[in-house]
Structures are given as structure tokens and as C-alpha cells.
Design a protein around this nucleic acid. Structure first.
Lengths: 192, 192
DNA sequence: ACAAATCTATACAGACTTGTCTATATAGTA
DNA sequence: TACTATATAGACAAGTCTGTATAGATTTGT
């Protein structure tokens, strides 16, 4: 009789991803070595290299998973708070504030990775670019639904406020940037 | 008869700072080793450790110098382009675009360093925070001179646009973000 | 010209890095 | 029960990193 999956020990791959996720986000991909990850996940080194062909591949896999998780969380948080497109655009910044307030918040993993992984050819770098593009696409979709003039320009401007708020909140370790970003967004949306 | 200073070989310290400056900015402090810096500057390793007590101290010295240089360049560029405070606020984003267009642009050294130097106690981290604060102070000064209502809020919002533009321009390797940041800033200033 | 400070070159310690290799153990399946 | 896939433990290679030690050369100020 097999143990039910709910109480089963997570697979080695899952434990690796779990450990890599917190360590990479918290301390940066370049400041965390393979040894830290296998120690934290309680996995043998060969298990890691059986599941991921290199550290760079693990970084890319982590970013891919985080991209999916983060965007799902973001969109759900926005969409459960408001239904009208204009309200949803503003709700984005409430979601940001909620994110910034988490004690382990350390900025955007994709901005951070694009800083650390200097090489644009790094597979993780590509994921970071696509992540930003996906956020832009989501904003653009909401802006169009709100029937705002010059949607591309407004979507870009809202993206700048969003990214700026992330950076400022990270450096100051203070979530208040989201409030001013929201105020600015409100102005821009009303004016348009 | 001493050689005129203009043709004199720069001091070891200057050559170290010069090499560290380009390497740290271009590839990140954590991706550049001491050996690269001494090779590039043509200096002996002991000379480096005579002038700087550690790599971390060199990083801090680099950031301090860059902070001074960058802010001087930024303010001069803004102030030679316009005299009225409102115009100067907008000229900030023209300066940004000029900066983003440089072929070796790789984002803000202070954002990048605050990502790489995880530890807030790192001397370089403090410099990064103070740099951002100094930019905020400069914006605030212009906003107040322009007699805009609620100057703290508006200055903060402009800071968010500025930082957001830097991040987006860096990741996309495209200076166009400055144009939209300027358009958004114009809206915010007019509305206030 | 002499003495003090600075710079160079190189070797080295000790720790850390990623990735490989080997050998053993533990599952699930036919 | 036997086979197969996966996991474990740990040693190891080959290279990197920062920082120190040593000894000789070169500038510099007086």
C-alpha cells in the first residue's frame, strides 16, 4: 500500500527547486553555490546534476518556475480585487504593496538576475526579458480594455512606474513606493 | 626637470580606479576578480592592497567616485539645457536618454550593486542608498522651485519614473524608455 | 647623491567553485 | 524474486578566489 502523495516526501527535484528558489532569491544566483543548495535540500550532489545539467540550467529552471508562479499570483490578486479594467490597473499597485510588505521581499528576481547574469546569452537572461515583456503585455491588455487613448504609450508608462516602485522599495526596504506609484498611475489614467 | 603632469603616467591608484571602474560597471563587482583588475591596470597586486585594504573597500571607493561623477554630469547636463525649474525637471529625462544611448550603458551602478552586495552592512550598499537619496533630494529641490503642490509626493513619483526607465532601458538594451518616462513626467507636472 | 617611499613581480596559502567519478542503497515493477 | 531506475555519500579534479609574504627595482624628495 503506497503512502498517500500528500504526506509523501517531495521528490529530489522538488526539494532542489525549493531550496534553490529561496536561496537564489534571497542571496542572488552568484552568491549561492551548489553546495549550499544540496545542503539545504538534503539531496546528493549527483541527484542535482541528474536533474539539471549545470548550475546555469538550474538558474534558468528556477526563473521559469518563478515567472509562472509570480504572474499567476499577480493576476489573481489584481483580478479578485477589481473587475473594471481601470480599477484593475490601479489594483496592480495594491498587489505590489502587498508583495513589498513581505518580510523576505528582495526585489524582482528578474531584474536582479539580469544584473547578475551579465551575458545576454545566458538562458536565464532570456527568461528575465520575457518576464518583463509578459508584464507589459498584461498591462497593455488592461489599458486596451479600459479604452484608453494611445494604449501602448500608457501601458509603457505604467510599466515604468511598476518597475521603478520595485527598485525603490527594494533599496529602501520600504513598501511605501507602491502608494506613490499608484497615485501617479491614477493621474496618468485620468489624464488619458 | 619633472615631466609635465599632462603626459605623466597616471599614478597606480588612478590606474586601479580606472580599471575597476569599467570592469565593475560592465560586468558587476562579483563577476570581476582582483586579478582582472591588476592585469587591466598593469599594476602589481601589492600596489592594490597598499591603496585599498580589501576588495570591498575598493568597491566602496569606486561607488563613491562614481556617485560624485555621475551626479555632477547629470546636474550639469540638466542645467545647461534649461533654466526654468519645470523645464529642468523634464530635461532630466533627456539626460537619461543620452545616458541610455551610450554603447557601454549597463544600468545604474547603484541599483546593480545593491543587488550584488546583498548585505546592507556592506560599505558599498550604504553608498548606493545615499546615491538614490541624493537624486531624490535633487528632484525635490527642482519640484519646490517649480512651486508644485505636494512637492514630496511629486518628487517621489518622478523618482519612480526615473528609476523605472533605467531598469527597463537596461533590460531591453533600448533607450526609448526615457521618452515615455518624460511623457509621463509631463503629465504629472501639468496635473499638479 | 642619498634615503625613504612607492611600485613591481612572483610565489604561495587557504578557502571556495563547479562538475565528475565511484560505489552503495533504496525504491517500484515485471 | 530479480531487474531497473533513482537516490545517497563522499572523495576528487581542476580551476577560481582573496589576501599575504618576500625581495628587488624604480621614483621621489631633500
Amino acid at each position: 500500500m503506497p503512502r498517500p502523495k500528500s504526506s509523501a516526501k517531495p521528490s529530489a527535484r522538488d526539494r532542489i527547486m525549493q531550496a534553490a528558489s529561496t536561496l537564489f532569491y534571497q542571496e542572488g544566483t552568484q552568491n549561492v553555490g551548489i553546495d549550499r543548495i544540496i545542503a539545504e535540500s538534503g539531496v546528493a550532489k549527483m541527484s542535482l546534476y541528474n536533474h539539471f545539467k549545470s548550475k546555469d540550467a538550474l538558474i534558468a529552471a528556477w526563473l521559469q518556475q518563478r515567472d509562472a508562479n509570480w504572474r499567476e499570483w499577480f493576476q489573481e490578486t489584481v483580478e479578485k480585487q477589481a473587475t473594471a479594467p481601470t480599477e484593475r490597473l490601479l489594483a496592480m499597485f495594491d498587489a505590489l504593496e502587498e508583495w513589498f510588505s513581505q518580510p523576505d521581499f528582495r526585489g524582482c528576481a528578474f531584474i536582479n538576475s539580469s544584473v547578475e547574469l551579465v551575458d545576454p546569452e545566458h538562458p536565464g537572461y532570456q527568461v528575465a526579458i520575457e518576464h518583463q515583456q509578459a508584464i507589459y503585455d498584461y498591462i497593455l491588455q488592461l489599458v486596451k480594455a479600459a479604452e484608453i487613448d494611445d494604449p501602448d504609450a500608457v501601458a509603457e508608462q505604467l510599466l515604468l512606474l511598476l518597475e521603478g516602485a520595485i527598485v525603490v522599495a527594494m533599496m529602501r526596504r520600504n513598501p511605501a513606493a507602491a502608494v506613490q506609484a499608484k497615485a501617479a498611475a491614477e493621474m496618468l489614467i485620468r489624464a488619458a
